[in-house]
């Protein structure tokens, strides 16, 4: 990995951390994307729009970066088969609801708060992710 890429990666992570603590400081909310995505019912009940506003921001932030770096526009040539995307996405949705969080809520906010639940969740999804990629690469080497 080149030094520039390494710095970018680390700095990008720091921006994500800054986003999470800023949201928490002002609104008291945890920047957990799965919870924000799933929370539309609360938006309608409490008439609050912060969740859709955050999601809109996610798209806008990535778009701003792409505007500055047109090479970053996603190319679909080397893509994962649709079946894996759909079944994987389904498990991501189901699992994040059942386990009350995802990479952002548990992996960043929860760990930063030293929550034992989040530490266990993160270790679990990391190891299951590693094992899944290992199995897929070995069972279907042509993918």
């Amino acid at each position: 990995m080149e030094i520039m890429t390494t710095l970018n990666t680390f700095f990008g992570g720091a921006l994500i951390g800054l986003s999470a603590i800023t949201l928490f400081l002002f609104t008291g909310r945890i920047a957990g994307i799965s919870g924000i995505m799933a929370g539309f019912k609360q938006c309608l009940l409490n008439k609050t729009a912060w969740r859709p506003a955050f999601l809109l921001g996610l798209v806008a932030g990535a778009f701003l970066y792409t505007l500055a770096n047109p090479a970053f526009i996603y190319s679909q040539d080397d893509n994962t088969p649709l079946g894996l995307l759909i079944s994987g996405g389904f498990l991501v949705g189901l699992g994040s609801r059942l386990g009350n969080g995802c990479t952002s809520g548990h992996g960043i906010c929860g760990i930063a708060n030293f929550s034992p639940r989040s530490i266990i969740a993160t270790l679990t999804f990391m190891s299951c992710g590693l094992l899944t990629v290992f199995l897929i690469k070995h069972l279907f080497p042509e993918l």
Partner: peptide, 11 residues
């Protein structure tokens, strides 16, 4: 939940 999430994430 975290296990299912991790499997889906890897897939």
């Amino acid at each position: 939940g975290a296990a299912l999430f991790g499997i889906g994430w890897g897939m």
